[in-house]
């Protein structure tokens, strides 16, 4: 699996304040890239730009060497994005929620795959309970089940550990490392201290455009 996401001279201005300027990023297969920084330093904005949701930025993005606007379709087919809001419908059961995501990926999907992915995030037995009756952590787990359900090489995860219990955090951390070792790539923001492994790389966003990237 080869993949690369590159940003050149990325800059974003919000309310007359530069969140970041001249940001160069090279994200390769087999990496977990953690975006760090204090609250309001633009982590979520950066992830939204890198996942192609925000067009309000300066600089260039390249996916596998091609400019993003030319390779958007291929990029979207490789991307799995989980944002702040879990994207789980309260009136639908976890199964129904996942069935929709399966279908959006163009896959008519099997029930077995949905059950397996729900079991992998510890939701066995909750498949047919309306998601609105689940706790915040369980709803987040429904969203995380998509990591198993739709195999995509690039994961962009915005605060995926929110509301997850300690065992769940450990399991998810293991899962991220496993994904990177299998040749995938993870972009993540979190305030949770991630275990230092060879795959982990940190990118710090400071206030007011000061920034340093460690490799």
């Amino acid at each position: 699996m080869t993949l690369s996401l590159q940003a050149r001279k990325l800059a974003c201005e919000r309310d007359d304040r530069w969140l970041f300027e001249d940001l160069d990023l090279d994200i390769q297969a087999g990496e977990i890239v953690r975006i760090e920084g204090p609250n309001g330093s633009g982590k979520t904005t950066l992830l939204k730009i890198l996942s192609g949701q925000l067009a309000d930025y300066q600089g260039e993005l390249f996916w596998n060497g091609l400019p993003m606007r030319e390779s958007r379709q291929a990029f979207l087919e490789s991307l799995l994005y989980l944002g702040h809001a879990p994207g789980v419908k309260a009136a639908l059961t976890p199964q129904e929620n996942l069935a929709w995501y399966q279908a959006l990926a163009g896959d008519s999907g099997s029930e077995a795959a949905r059950l397996t992915s729900l079991a992998s995030v510890g939701l066995a037995g909750f498949e047919d309970v309306p998601a609105g009756q689940l706790s915040a952590g369980q709803q987040r787990r429904v969203a995380l089940a998509r990591l198993e359900l739709t195999p995509r090489p690039l994961w962009v995860l915005d605060e995926p550990f929110t509301a997850i219990d300690r065992d769940g955090v450990e399991a998810l951390e293991e899962r991220l490392i496993e994904h990177a070792r299998a040749g995938g790539c993870v972009l993540v923001t979190t305030h949770h201290p991630l275990r230092q492994t060879d795959e982990l790389r940190r990118v710090s966003l400071g206030g007011g455009g000061q920034r340093h990237a460690e490799h």
């Binding site: 949701q53 979207l76 087919e77 994005y81 809001a85 789980v88 419908k89 995501y101 163009g106």
Partner: peptide
């Protein structure tokens, strides 16, 4: 509105469809 509030709309925009 509902899709916007719970984040489904973001996901809808990021599908390859």
């Amino acid at each position: 509105r509902g899709d916007f509030d719970d984040g489904s709309l973001e996901q809808l925009l990021l599908t390859p469809q």
